[in-house]
Design a protein around this nucleic acid. Structure first.
Length: 597
RNA sequence: GGUCUGGUAGCUCAGUCGGAUUAGAGCAACAGCCUUCUAAGCUGUGGGUCAUGGGUUCGAGCCCCAUCCGGAUCACCA
């Protein structure tokens, strides 16, 4: 049982006994004691002063006295300052805690069993007409990290992806490829499949705008020109053919999508993310239509004279929402309903989490209500993990203005920078093969990118400066990785000399060491909070704080001398424990830690 | 305009359930520290009206109300 839990329990009993009033968990507030006071754990007694009808100081004294009598093996002393009761904890308690952290490789994680709640997490959700960009990178990293965090909190997790593989945007790429492609393939062009298709999407847009411009110069209204341009008409015709299962169009569509998927897979692999189940919109969009018709027959929705189907959400304080167009085709919302139906058939989902940008907050508010109305038990409390936009120094990313940061380019640049940086420190990497050096550069470069994105609160918009933002110094992934590599280096040298001598330990445990042990213990709380708030960033910040604190007395380490043996033992054990926790924490973020760098 | 969301150092960001005379990191600037298990590190200096004004209480960056400023959204687009 944890030290804090034992104290908390004892405090409850004591206060109830002293003042004869019930005490809730919330009233027992324990925190780490400030450095300037004696003790390690502090009880805030203000919540009890009302029932004690005494001054905060006196109340604290009273509780401290009883607490010490009740838990003599845990508490070795106490002092009261104003409304704060500072408790000194016996060294033996800290030592057993340290041992537990060090020997338990799953420290901080809750076990997952067959009875654990089933959580499905949807993330990534790319369109198949262009390669992934920085915004997708944030989505993918958050989605993956969130999946790890949920699992660490004792949930069964299914990671899923809904691929938007149909629609007018795909037809645009297909058409452009037919017109100007000359049969180009990823093999003949040497381009990644997703980039190849993306280039044709851009080509379409370019020609299309020229056409519109020409029509406008001939005196046509711009809105009309956008609809009348021959290219867009042709693309629409293609979409109709696709829906009619025209074999030629379908074959081309399949071929191009395969190229794109191969490209995506490369990017996903580089980012270190993956999925347990992938859904394709081409397979789900018809399901949604059925579900809407079903809702219509139950009177949940209504049909307008023009044939379109709507949901009236004015009762929920929202607007009316279109579900089927007047021509009977699906909209975005319909497809999400269809996907939900298939997912529910495939898995007994207890909780559904959608990792989607905050621009779609309204969409998910509506989706939640609709799914609930349609009888999905997890619909009402589905979670929209809503993350902020990534902004660039000169504004937002706009594909038309060419201010998009491409995911593959970014990854390559990060790895290259890491490689260059480590080349400057070539003396450290003696005896390392070129292959190993490349692997380290990959781990460090990706660590920098991942940490930079994940340390920011997911809900907030964040600024990304490609030239300056990603640093390898300061509060960064590489800083944490570097500390881990150093710990490993120490352990490689001294590991076989770790022995346990509890008596000797007690004499060497100073406030600094105890503070670090408490910090280590805080990992459990950080994991728990990350799961509750759906917020991986608190784990990143926890790792940084831990490493920062560790580094401060890493520098006191000196070569092992005979008379310092005990001191070294304590520090070796601390180092091992810090390394273990850092590895676990970074693992939750999808960041690898290198044995050396 | 309605709804949602954010505003903390020059810049990028932390800040746990509301807790302790002094609100923290990093970057940028300046001054130190490598004969030693990794200096991608450590130490120090300067830098703040926590957007503004009220309120709640033993106590507010955090909770409530109002105002100002930014962002998102309110499509027979996805």
């Amino acid at each position: 049982m944890k030290i804090e839990d034992r104290i908390s329990e004892a405090v409850k009993a004591i206060v109830e006994e002293l003042y004869g009033q019930p005490v809730t968990d919330k009233m027992v507030q324990l925190q780490q004691t400030r450095a300037e006071f004696e003790g390690q754990i502090t009880l805030v007694v203000f919540p009890f002063t009302k029932m004690s009808r005494k001054a905060p100081d006196a109340t604290a004294q009273e509780i401290g006295e009883r607490l010490m009598a009740k838990l003599p093996e845990v508490i070795s002393g106490y002092n009261a300052v104003k409304g704060f009761l500072n408790l000194s904890i016996s060294s033996s308690q800290w030592i057993s805690l340290l041992q537990e952290i060090q020997t338990n490789p799953k420290f901080g994680f809750k076990p997952v069993t067959d009875e654990s709640p089933l959580v499905m997490i949807e993330y990534s959700s790319p369109n198949t007409n262009k390669p992934l960009h920085l915004g997708h990178v944030r989505n993918n990293l958050l989605g993956w990290a969130l999946a790890q965090v949920m699992e660490a909190n004792g949930n069964r997790v299914v990671k899923t992806n809904i691929v938007n593989d149909r629609g007018i945007h795909i037809c645009k790429s297909m058409l452009a490829w037919l017109k100007w492609g000359n049969g180009e393939t990823p093999e003949t062009s040497g381009k990644k499949g997703d980039h190849l298709i993306g280039d044709y999407y851009v080509a379409f847009d370019k020609h299309y705008r020229e056409e519109v411009k020409q029509l406008v110069s001939q005196g046509m209204d711009e809105e009309q020109a956008k609809q009348e341009a021959p290219l867009i008409k042709e693309a629409h015709e293609m979409l109709v053919k696709w829906e009619q299962n025209d074999p030629e169009v379908r074959n081309l569509w399949k071929q191009m999508n395969e190229w794109v998927y191969a490209g995506f897979d490369e990017t996903y692999q580089a980012l270190g993310v993956g999925f347990d189940k992938i859904y394709y919109e081409s397979e789900t969009y018809l399901e949604g239509r059925e579900k809407v018709e079903e809702g219509l027959s139950k009177g949940l929705f209504y049909r307008r004279p023009d044939g379109s189907v709507w949901a009236d959400l004015t009762g929920e304080g929202l607007d009316e929402k279109l579900l089927l167009r007047s021509d009977g085709t699906s909209v975005y919302m319909t497809q999400d309903i269809g996907t939900a139906k298939l997912r529910f058939q495939d898995y007994p989902i207890d909780k559904m989490i959608y990792v989607v940008g905050n621009e779609q907050n309204y969409h998910f508010q509506v989706l939640s209500i609709l799914l609930d109305k349609l009888g999905f038990k997890w619909g009402k409390d589905l979670v929209h993990f809503s993350y902020g936009m990534v902004e660039l120094p000169n504004g937002k990313m706009k594909s038309r203005e060419g201010t998009v940061v491409d995911a593959d380019d970014l990854v390559a640049a990060m790895i290259r920078d890491a490689k260059e940086l480590s080349a400057d420190k070539v003396n450290k990497l003696e005896g390392i093969t070129e292959q190993e050096a490349q692997e380290i550069a990959r781990i460090v470069g990706m660590g920098a990118l991942k940490y930079f994105i994940l340390k920011v609160d997911a809900r907030k918009n964040m600024l990304f400066n490609p030239e300056e933002s990603i640093d390898f110094n300061g509060n960064t992934g590489p800083f944490i990785q570097y500390t881990y590599a150093r710990i490993k280096s120490i352990l490689r040298k001294w590991n076989n000399e770790i022995v346990l001598d509890e008596k000797a330990f007690e004499t060497e445990l100073a406030d600094k060491e105890i503070s670090l042990i408490q910090k280590l213990q805080g990992f459990e709380a950080a994991v728990c909070q990350a799961g509750q708030d759906y917020n991986p960033s608190c784990i990143a910040n926890y790792c940084y704080e831990l490493v920062k604190e560790y580094n401060q007395f890493y520098h006191d380490f000196s070569v092992l001398k005979e008379e310092d043996k005990t001191k070294q033992q304590v520090r070796l054990m601390l180092s091992a424990a810090v390394g273990q926790v850092v590895k676990n924490g970074m693992g939750l973020l999808g960041i690898k830690v290198p044995e050396r760098m």
